[in-house]
Computed example of a mutant assay.
Amino acid sequence: MNTSRLIKRFGVKGFGSAGVVLGMALSTPVLAKDVVVKIGHIAPLSGPQAHYGKDNESGARLAIEDLNAMKIQLEGGTAKFELVPEDDAADPKTGAIVAQKLCDMKVNGIVGHLNSGTTIPASRIYYDCSIPQITPSATTPKITQQGFDSVFRVIAHDGVLGVALAKFTVSDLKAKRVVVIDDRTGYGQPLADIYAKNVQANGAQVVERHYTNDKATDFAAILTAVKRANPDVVFYGGMDAQAGPMLRQMKQLGIKASLIGGDGICTTELVKLGGDNVGSNVICAEGGMALSKMPGGPAFEQRFKAKYKADIQVYAPFVYDAVMTMGMAMKAAKSADPKKYLPKLKSISHQGVIGTIAFDELGDVKNAAVTVNTYNQQGKTPLKVLQ
């Protein structure tokens, strides 16, 4: 029975308070319901790698702002995206604990972790609880080779970076003698292994191999041996927190070899950590185009600096694109349910800050470029793009 017939039959007075309530309900517009979508973001927010983590989180927050401005319609209403930030301190055990916490919270998706060493154990946990994960910066090839169909990566992996750096070492630097050092982490060791194998395949000799850890700051013993070996190049598989002190100590010992490394040392922070010891003697490679060459790079950099009053370290554009790509997959599926949007994520083609994001059968970004950089008075400067 419709409302007019109810009122005619019973009358508003006869209908009592129910009639008043009914009248109010009829005159009150139905408001769209917010559908809360929680995106977990995990990175080191404490410790010597906190500058990476804060940079990544800033990129994620910009993406969350943009997704909310789009008023994306999902099943049940308008999506309200929320970032759930967690600190893994670049520690694998802490990373696993945080991963389980986010699983228990039933977040809708994961962007992170920053490090390969934390990403590997966490990826198993996310896979087991059926939450899609996109890493913006963990580069060891193993991550996408585990058979987990819900793990993705938006940056070139170490198989690409290590090969590119090895070729550059021989073809561009004309190096013959190389010393390789790594920090024994899930990132540094595989990258160093790939580099060592390929630099020898390209005709150079690895004259010594040394090991440290990701907490070290004193490299006197290693560098004394390096000086005796008299290499053309020292390769370091690790992060800038160790590369900076290493550069200072190399200069103190009179080691004239160039220091080469992957994206872990390829930061603006390296200049602060290494001081005036950082210059053309440092060569590093990072996945993707240089920020100035990314399709959306200059505009993103301008917005980032205006909001955060800071330079981008390395990965903020990749984090931004990872969050946006996940959001666009949800939009395409009209759902934040991982089971429903995962197929859209696998087949997505999203035009992001870094370029076109589409994934291969393993979950790695297709057509990943590598930029080889050095440093000068203006800071980090691209030398060559390899693809």
Score class of each variant (00 low, 15 high):
residue 1 M to A: 11
residue 9 R to A: 15
residue 10 F to A: 04
residue 10 F to C: 06
residue 25 A to Y: 07
residue 25 A to R: 12
residue 26 L to K: 05
residue 34 D to R: 07
residue 34 D to N: 02
residue 37 V to L: 05
residue 58 S to Q: 02
residue 63 A to H: 03
residue 64 I to L: 08
residue 66 D to I: 09
residue 69 A to N: 09
residue 79 A to D: 04
residue 81 F to H: 03
residue 87 D to G: 10
residue 87 D to M: 06
residue 89 A to L: 13
residue 90 A to I: 05
residue 91 D to M: 11
residue 93 K to R: 01
residue 101 K to D: 14
residue 101 K to F: 11
residue 102 L to Q: 09
residue 103 C to N: 11
residue 104 D to M: 15
residue 105 M to F: 14
residue 109 G to S: 04
residue 110 I to H: 04
residue 113 H to K: 09
residue 115 N to T: 15
residue 117 G to N: 09
residue 137 S to N: 03
residue 140 T to G: 07
residue 141 P to R: 08
residue 142 K to R: 10
residue 148 F to S: 12
residue 153 R to Y: 08
residue 155 I to P: 06
residue 159 G to P: 01
residue 161 L to N: 01
residue 164 A to P: 10
residue 167 K to D: 15
residue 169 T to F: 01
residue 169 T to K: 03
residue 170 V to R: 03
residue 171 S to V: 06
residue 178 V to K: 04
residue 181 I to P: 09
residue 185 T to K: 01
residue 188 G to I: 06
residue 188 G to F: 02
residue 196 A to T: 10
residue 198 N to C: 03
residue 208 E to Y: 08
residue 209 R to Y: 11
residue 217 T to E: 10
residue 221 A to G: 11
residue 224 T to W: 12
residue 224 T to Q: 13
residue 226 V to S: 14
residue 228 R to P: 10
residue 243 A to M: 10
residue 246 M to W: 13
residue 252 Q to F: 12
residue 265 I to C: 08
residue 268 T to S: 02
residue 272 K to R: 14
residue 272 K to V: 00
residue 274 G to E: 00
residue 275 G to K: 00
residue 281 N to V: 01
residue 296 G to R: 13
residue 298 P to H: 02
residue 299 A to H: 04
residue 300 F to N: 05
residue 303 R to C: 08
residue 307 K to L: 07
residue 312 I to R: 02
residue 314 V to M: 00
residue 315 Y to T: 13
residue 321 D to T: 01
residue 325 T to Y: 07
residue 335 S to H: 09
residue 337 D to V: 13
residue 337 D to W: 03
residue 344 K to M: 12
residue 346 K to N: 08
residue 351 Q to S: 10
residue 355 G to K: 07
residue 355 G to A: 12
residue 360 D to Y: 09
residue 363 G to M: 15
residue 364 D to G: 06
residue 365 V to F: 02
residue 370 V to W: 05
residue 372 V to P: 03
residue 373 N to W: 02
residue 373 N to R: 04
residue 374 T to Q: 03
residue 379 G to C: 07
residue 382 P to C: 00
residue 384 K to M: 02
residue 386 L to M: 08
residue 387 Q to M: 14
